[in-house]
Every structure is written in structure tokens, then in C-alpha cells.
Design a protein around this nucleic acid. Structure first.
Length: 302
DNA sequence: TGCCAGGAATTGC
DNA sequence: GCAATTCATGGC
């Protein structure tokens, strides 16, 4: 399934045809406050944790292949395999976008987007704890402030790897966060509810009551229902996690403020569409709601 | 200053 | 199941 080649010191991954590294970079550059990776020139640098080891990798692109270099330590073959698989998932390479483009080319609102952003893929958040807690941070606040919260969260409770005078971060572990009090996160300007949702979810993961592996066994509908049981996870968050962590193409955060803003802009509405209108507008998106949403989000930062 | 932001829980029917 | 209400906190 994963199309890759490895030598002793690097990996090469052959992406599917419908892929634009450049478009993915545009997405990755969307916030100056992001600290989970760094973009230098056209390379992506980030730390990945594999078999309890933190490895700094550099992702670069030359036509028809992604290259992964290991900057701190050359990993074992098993680790290299895991990294290849991680990258494969990060760019959602398992998805064949042909049917999405076919559908979208029939939709007046979407046709220009798939032309402009051709090859853009949903960039995932493979780590479940990160996906869920990042979504919670983003609930009902503007994105700038959400990034600020994440930054403080990571800088306080994450792990730092320094290399060549620059810092790279590993997202806080649920073990660390599970032992916090809400007052700790309040100091970072988390609201009381966000703080307790995040710590509560960390405890669920620490106790093994929720794992990515177990969720992966479920069908999307059951997966969503399981997530909805968690305090702090509503429909929006569950769909966001299905989309970003589990690559479910039908996941659809239908009440999303950014989605509504993008639709309003594209259709020239005077106000944001109602949920009923979004349902009507999206009636032909079956199977690709997550991709449509992602492309519409993308359209907001042109 | 008031409205808004990549909402969720609670309550009432 | 669906709507209205309350909560929470900074950005612009």
C-alpha cells in the first residue's frame, strides 16, 4: 500500500498522482504561531516519536517523490518503516481523489477551488490526543487565540528538541496532562471548561479507556458515537477528529464557522448560511464532505 | 464596544 | 431528536 524506497540514511516516498506538495505547503504555512513543525525554504522539519525515541526529520520534495532525511539519528529499519507509514498517512496518500474531483467539477461553487488547489490533500493529525485536544482548544474562539493557547500548552508541557540553534517540539503526552489541575491550564488562559475537558480526556487515555487502535476497529458512525460520549466532544469536534486523525472522507463538521464563512464568501451571501442551507448546498457532496470542507477552509486564506 | 470565533453542556419539550 | 439558553475568553 505504501509506495516507498529506503536507503541507509533516508527514505523516499512516491506519492499518488493527484498530489501537490506546493499546495500542502500553503496549508502548512497558514499560521505564524504554529510550532509543531518548522518550514525552512520548502522543507518541513519536525520531530516524530517512534518507539519512544524522538527523531528530527526533514521532508523535502523533488518531482514525484518525497524525501525524508534524518537529522539527529539514523533510525532502525522498523522505525524507518513506521516513519514512512506516518508520512503516508500525514498527507492522506491512501485517498484516491479522482472521484472527488469528478464530483466537484460538477459543482459551480467547488469547480474553481479544485482547479486552484489541485493536489491539496487533507493534512492529518495522526496523534489522537493532539487531534482531540487541539480541536477542543479551537472551540468557539478565534483561530489566532487558539494557536496562542496551543503554543503555551506545548511550550509548558511538551518536550523540546534543539538542533542547529532551533527548537522543535513534541506535543504534550496525555500522561503529563492527566496529572494537571484545571488551575494549571487556567494560568495559560484556557477557560475552565476547556481545561477540564482536556484534562478529562487525558485521563481517559491514561486509563486506556480510549485508544486510537480501538477506535480504528469501528465503523465511522460508531467511532463518532464513541467520541461523542466524551465530555467536551460534540458533533463538531468528533467530525473534526474523524477528518484529521482517521481520514474519514465523509466526516462533515457541518456547523463549522469557517465552513459557513467560506460558503458565504463563495456564494456572495449577505449573511452566513443556516445549517438547513448548508445541507441543501452539500447534497451532492456524498462521500467527500471532508475534502470539500478542507478545500473551503483553504479558500479562506488566499 | 459589541459582535464574533474552526462549540459544548444543560434544560425543556 | 431539536431549539433555546448559558457559559467562556480574547480578537478586532
Amino acid at each position: 500500500m505504501i509506495n516507498w524506497i529506503h536507503s541507509d540514511t533516508y527514505i523516499e516516498i512516491i506519492p499518488p498522482v493527484e498530489f501537490s506538495y506546493e499546495q500542502c505547503l500553503v496549508f502548512l504555512r497558514r499560521s505564524d504561531l504554529e510550532l509543531m513543525y518548522q518550514i525552512q525554504e520548502n522543507d518541513i522539519l519536525q520531530v516524530v516519536s517512534v518507539d519512544s525515541e524522538n527523531l528530527l526529520i526533514k521532508i523535502s520534495y523533488s518531482p514525484h517523490r518525497l524525501r525524508i532525511d534524518f537529522l539527529t539519528k539514523v533510525p532502525s529499519i522498523t522505525q524507518r518503516q513506521k516513519i514512512a507509514s506516518y508520512i503516508w498517512g500525514l498527507f492522506d496518500f491512501n485517498q484516491n481523489l479522482t472521484a472527488f474531483y469528478e464530483m466537484a467539477s460538477q459543482e459551480v461553487m467547488l469547480q474553481p477551488l479544485i482547479e486552484k488547489y489541485y493536489g491539496l490533500r487533507i493534512i492529518g493529525i495522526p496523534d489522537l490526543f493532539e487531534a482531540v485536544t487541539w480541536a477542543i482548544m479551537g472551540q468557539q474562539i478565534n483561530l489566532k487565540f487558539a494557536y496562542l493557547l496551543k503554543r503555551r500548552f506545548v511550550e509548558h508541557y511538551g518536550e523540546r528538541v534543539s538542533h542547529d540553534g532551533k527548537d522543535y517540539w513534541i506535543y504534550p503526552s496525555f500522561h503529563t496532562i492527566a496529572s494537571l489541575e484545571t488551575s494549571d491550564l487556567r494560568k495559560l488562559q484556557f477557560s475552565t471548561s476547556k481545561a477540564s475537558y482536556i484534562i478529562g480526556f487525558a485521563k481517559l487515555m491514561r486509563e486506556g479507556e480510549i485508544t486510537k487502535e480501538e477506535l480504528l476497529r469501528l465503523k465511522p458512525q460508531q467511532m463518532k458515537e464513541t467520541l461523542l460520549q466524551v465530555k467536551g466532544i460534540g458533533h463538531w469536534t468528533a467530525d473534526y477528529v474523524l477528518m484529521k486523525c482517521f481520514h474519514i472522507p465523509t466526516a462533515f463538521p457541518i456547523a463549522d464557522a469557517g465552513l459557513h464563512q467560506a460558503i458565504q464568501k463563495r456564494l456572495g451571501f449577505n449573511q452566513k448560511p443556516t445549517i438547513g442551507e448548508v445541507k441543501e448546498i452539500s447534497k451532492n457532496w456524498n462521500g467527500w464532505q471532508a475534502y470539500v470542507t478542507f478545500y473551503l477552509w483553504r479558500s479562506l486564506y488566499d
